[in-house]
């Protein structure tokens, strides 16, 4: 038995070393979180417009098309809490900030990211954005703790050559540029799947909406415009009754927030007829040409 345990121990030491290599390899992989962090470190004092929110904003707004220095700090499944934490951390250096663009869909993202299936994103905020929200002994401090995403990263680095959903130099998600037209993503079935996903998400809300109030309060105090936007959704998505209900809830919530804070300027583009199937990557995310169109529209509408 002793021999067996000793051999197992030796084997586990090897496994531990392998995991260390994997951890290091995953951390070396280029990723959007680190890119955004590096940009903010270098430019936070001169940035005039910042985009926050989830993938809807991440895909929809190309800062390069806005006048002045603008950057997209949004990310997939980025909750209100992380939006606020990213903003709060840089408040002292955001001397030139004039406007924040925020998608109204993020008003419903008032849950803990840690409780969702995409909890591994907390690791990235911890490691690459240096948001010390968790202990270094917790699973949120190690890439290998999420073995699946860690494997993907290492695989993408060494095998497929495609890195994790990267962003361009202005923080806009290039993944949607690489996949301009995905007709199979624009079907009623996909629309139903997506809305079901949103409805399931409602079950994990944990009243973290105070984080949006923190952000709005900050903007109010510092005279920063908070542009609350309903991002466009595809015709097939908005034709679903459940989606219309969902968008109505978002709209009501956004209107309420706009009434509470004078710094908020709200505009809903969800049903904007200027957007057709060609502008979408999937049912509720714009592709590159859609993002260009949308950014130009808001640039005109809000004088950005």
């Amino acid at each position: 038995m002793r021999k067996f345990l000793f051999r197992i121990l030796c084997f586990l030491v090897g496994v531990f070393l392998l995991l260390c290599v994997a951890e290091q390899a995953a951390r070396v992989c280029p990723n959007a979180y680190r890119n955004k962090e590096n940009w903010m470190e270098a430019n936070s004092d001169r940035v005039e417009t910042l985009v926050f929110g989830s993938s809807h904003a991440y895909a929809a707004i190309k800062p390069e098309l806005l006048s002045g220095c603008a950057f997209n700090l949004a990310n997939s499944n980025q909750t209100q809490r992380y939006d606020w934490l990213l903003l709060q951390r840089d408040t002292t250096s955001l001397a030139s900030l004039k406007a924040i663009i925020y998608p109204s869909s993020s008003l419903l993202m008032d849950y803990r990211l840690e409780d969702t299936s995409e909890w591994y994103r907390c690791i990235y905020y911890q490691l690459y954005n240096h948001l010390d929200e968790h202990s270094f002994l917790s699973k949120y401090a190690w890439e290998v703790a999420s073995i699946q995403t860690c494997c993907w990263k290492v695989q993408s680095l060494f095998i497929s050559g495609e890195s994790d959903r990267m962003c361009d130099e202005y923080g806009w998600c290039t993944y949607y540029q690489a996949h301009p037209s995905q007709k199979e993503n624009l079907t009623p079935t996909k629309a139903e799947e997506r809305i079901r996903k949103y409805e399931e998400r409602e079950g994990i809300h944990s009243s973290e909406e105070s984080f949006f109030d923190e952000m709005a309060g900050y903007c109010q105090r510092h005279g920063i415009r908070l542009l609350l936007l309903g991002t466009p959704v595809s015709p097939v998505f908005r034709s679903q009754a459940a989606v219309r209900e969902y968008l109505k809830t978002t709209d009501l919530k956004a209107q309420r927030e706009a009434a509470n804070y004078s710094c908020i300027e709200y505009q809903d583009y969800s049903f904007d007829p200027r957007f057709s199937d060609e502008d979408f990557f999937d049912v509720d995310h714009l592709n590159s040409s859609g993002a260009t169109k949308f950014t130009q529209i808001i640039s005109q509408d809000f004088g950005l």
């Binding site: 084997f11 090897g14 496994v15 392998l18 994997a22 699946q148 494997c151 290492v154 695989q155």
Partner: peptide
Amino acid sequence: RWSIYYGLLVLIFFHYIST
């Protein structure tokens, strides 16, 4: 023998998809 074991672990790591 041990190289084979570790080789297989690396193989799993590189081809792991989901649970």
